[in-house]
Amino acid sequence: MDKLYCKGGGCTAKLGAGILSHILERLPKQNFDENLIVGFDAKDDAAVYKLSEDLAFVQTLDFFPPMVEDPYIFGQIAAANALSDIYAMGGEVKTALNIVCFPQSSDLNLLGEIMRGGLEKVKEAGGVLAGGHSIDDVDVKYGLSVTGIVNPGKIYSNNTGRTKDKLILTKKLGVGIICTAARIGETDEKTLNEAIDSMKTLNKYACEISKKYDIHACTDITGFGFLGHLLEMMDDNKSCEIFANQIPVFEEAKSLADEFLITAGGQRNRNHVGDNVEFNDISFAMEEILFDPQTSGGLLLAVSFDEAESLLEELRCAGLPAAIVGEIKERENVAIKVVNR
Rank of each mutant, 00 (worst) to 15 (best):
Asn203Ile: 03
Asn109Gln: 12
Ser134Asn: 09
Asp275Ala: 10
Leu169Tyr: 00
Val128Gly: 09
Gly18Asp: 09
Met89Trp: 06
Phe40Thr: 05
Asp197Phe: 12
Arg331Ser: 00
Phe279Ile: 04
Thr170Leu: 12
Ile178Ala: 13
Asn245Val: 01
Phe305Trp: 14
Leu202Arg: 10
Ile289Arg: 04
Leu36Ala: 13
Asn158Tyr: 01
Cys101Gln: 15
Gly225Val: 06
Gly18Met: 12
Glu120Gln: 11
Met286Asp: 08
Glu120Thr: 04
Leu51Ala: 14
Asn237Ser: 15
Val334Gln: 00
Leu108Asp: 07
Met199Ala: 13
Ala323Trp: 00
Val175Ile: 07
Gly185Trp: 05
Ser210Gln: 02
Cys218Met: 06
Asn203Asp: 02
Ala46Lys: 00
Glu186Val: 01
Lys238Pro: 01
Arg270Thr: 01
Tyr5Thr: 10
Val140Gly: 13
Gly112Asn: 12
Gly91Phe: 03
Gln59Thr: 05
Ser296Tyr: 03
Lys123His: 07
Val48Met: 03
Leu301Ala: 03
Thr187Ala: 08
Glu92Gly: 02
Phe243Arg: 05
Glu314Asp: 01
Ile19Glu: 06
Gly127Gln: 10
Ser84Phe: 08
Thr222Pro: 04
Asn245Arg: 04
Cys179Asn: 12
Gly228Asp: 00
Ala181Ser: 15
Asp139Ala: 09
Ala181His: 14
Gln267Pro: 00
Ile168Met: 10
Arg268Thr: 07
Thr201Gln: 08
Lys141Thr: 04
Val249Pro: 13
Thr222Gln: 01
Met1Asp: 01
Met199Thr: 02
